[in-house]
């Protein structure tokens, strides 16, 4: 965890590879078996460029990015995103690379003590934003 957190503090950027196997695992864990997340045939029938990642998986990875920085998944008290563009996941060993970065945009006193940091998150796939208006609220000790 960054020793001093202030407005403007940047989170260490991370990138996450998402493969078809990850989509299958997330489908099972979340119960979202929509075939656009595992079937090329169905994905192309509905006009998608290919099988796409669950938006909620991309959001979860954003949550993981923030909780990893905070060092505590129970510190993440708010997460908000707009799904602006799909993450297309090819059927190969490389998968899709999603790059996360973010910075602290506000700090406030938390009602129960400690502080709440507001974090603006950027998530890029092939250089383009996949999560718009992505914001997290994290409790700091």
């Amino acid at each position: 965890m960054t020793p001093v957190v202030e407005v403007g503090t940047e989170l260490p950027p991370t990138s996450v590879r998402v493969t078809r196997a990850d989509l299958v695992r997330y489908a099972g864990a979340s119960g979202d078996f929509n075939p656009i997340h595992w079937s090329d045939r169905v994905a192309s029938e509905v006009g998608l460029p290919g099988v796409i990642a669950h938006g909620m998986l991309t959001m979860a990875l954003a949550g993981r990015f923030v909780s990893g920085w905070a060092g505590d998944p129970s510190a993440v008290r708010g997460l908000s995103v707009r799904f602006t563009r799909p993450v297309v996941v090819p059927d190969d060993d490389e998968g899709a690379l999603v790059e996360f970065s973010g910075n602290v945009t506000a700090l406030a006193d938390a009602p129960g003590g400690g502080r709440v940091a507001t974090i603006a998150i950027k998530a890029l796939f092939e250089g383009r934003t996949v999560l718009g208006k992505a914001v997290a609220e994290v409790l700091l000790p």
């Binding site: 695992r25 864990a29 979860a60 990875l61 998944p73």
Partner: peptide, 10 residues
């Protein structure tokens, strides 16, 4: 299971 699926190793 859910934590594993989203890469949460905490």
């Amino acid at each position: 299971e859910f934590a594993r699926a989203v890469g949460e190793t905490s």
